[in-house]
Design a protein around this nucleic acid. Structure first.
Lengths: 257, 257
DNA sequence: CCCAATTTGTTCGTATGTATC
DNA sequence: AGATACATACGAACAAATTGG
């Protein structure tokens, strides 16, 4: 195994940060995969010639990035870990916490990504997957009576999109759509944005989505794309009134939808 | 100031993680903004009733997420910090390090996002901004002779897209396009992917981009969208041969392009 | 059920480094 | 230059969690 040297003075990185970077490079160089165990704390202390606290801080840095997980006890230790979608979502959400993001901004992306997703999935889904989509749709088959029901339906509607994205074979497209759905879900629960019922939006949403499932089942990509494009434009139009700033809080680690 | 209590036993979070979350909530609740100073280490130790090492690990966690920065010396301390685009890019890049991402996957996104960006910027750019775009284009006005020049031109071409994205008023669109450009730049420098000259790709790219700047200057959104859509489809077609797995390494903190 | 071994987790005291005045 | 106020690093001891006998 390579000696895992660390740079003497890179550019004002604290020692734990240097150690974290060194470990990261080390993992990469050795091609270690999720599940593989890193050397124990004691070994790292010896290998890097640093105090326990310093090594531990380095591990914490990697853990915060979602790259490792540690367990106590015999057979325990620090293990390479595949960054989870939830972690990536939370970390990216931190970035947008400081950005001034509007409904318009989000829908400018949705209006092009969602139709592309729909088109790419047309004719590619199993009957079980199509059923799962229809299952989510049952959550809003009846018009909402209360603001609470309204909110629940909105979340279910976002879950529909997140579920659809999950079926994509494109990890990038999948992540982006689910990330955006999570952000929208976050403001739904954290704010009174949709307190007053907006029948038009959610009833039309139901119509769009049922037509979409039909198009997906029949394998009509152009139709699927067109339906979702219309759906997004319509949703955007109905929400534009609320020109509100998003992400007023950090996204929680555990997904909302 | 609120007491900043921490949850007794949330769900198997280590104490530093609990403290980090508590500090995060505390910052949010108080509406602290970038530049604001958190209580000193000593105060945090007292407030949370925990040892120095634990507090320090918590600070490291927040620092790894890009949410705080700490300085030594008088007037030093831990400061709230706006998550930088570079940090967000690196953290999200960690996620895709473990995903099987293909050229097709990336271009499926580019082919819809880039035209949307172009359309939204048509007629909105100042002459100085248009000049800046043309300035980048001079990097590949001559056909490349060597593989090294070829590579440099490819990076410049990606820088063109990143620069264009920077001019968008949409922080989400801006980040996504620049993130993708960074990923493509990363594989360009880390691999021999474009070792053999591909004249067709880069000469056609120059043509597309100069026509794009014209459309942007004249404020023809439809034309701008069409040009970039064609450009992306063409680039995708020429690169499809290399059905290669991307992101075989972690993205560096400092942007490539 | 308990005990022992193993590994991370936490604490405390002290010392060092660094930037400001 | 020296004093001050901070974070940073070290080391030794102790605590907690997990596994297996």
């Amino acid at each position: 195994m390579p000696p895992a040297t660390i740079r003497s003075t890179p550019e004002r990185l604290s020692r734990p940060q240097q150690v974290a970077e060194a470990i990261k490079s080390w993992v990469m160089a050795n091609g270690w995969r999720p599940g593989d165990r890193l050397p124990s704390e004691a070994e790292l202390i010896e290998r890097f010639g640093m105090a326990k606290g310093t090594i531990r801080e380095a591990i914490r840095i990697l853990e915060a990035q979602g790259l490792v997980k540690s367990r106590t006890g015999p057979g325990g230790g620090v293990f390479v870990h595949q960054v989870s979608e939830e972690r990536a979502t939370a970390l990216l959400g931190n970035y947008f916490y400081f950005q001034h993001l509007t409904i318009d901004d989000v829908y400018q992306i949705r209006v092009v990504l969602e139709p592309e997703l729909a088109a790419s999935l047309a004719g590619k889904l199993s009957e079980a997957q199509l059923r799962a989509l229809e299952e989510v749709m049952t959550c809003y088959s009846e018009p909402a009576r209360t603001a609470e029901e309204e909110r629940a339906q909105h979340l279910a509607s976002l879950r529909f999109h997140a579920l659809l994205a999950e079926m994509s074979g494109n990890p990038l497209l999948r992540f982006l759509i689910r990330f955006i759905a999570n952000m929208l879900a976050d403001i739904t629960v954290s704010r009174k944005l949709y307190a007053q019922p907006n029948r038009e939006l959610w009833s039309s949403g139901l119509d769009y989505q049922s037509r979409l499932v039909t198009a997906l089942r029949e394998g009509d990509a152009d139709d699927a794309r067109r339906i979702l494009a219309d759906h997004m434009q319509n949703a955007h139009r109905l929400m534009r009134l609320q020109e509100t700033v998003l992400t007023q809080r950090f996204l929680p680690e555990k997904g909302i939808i």
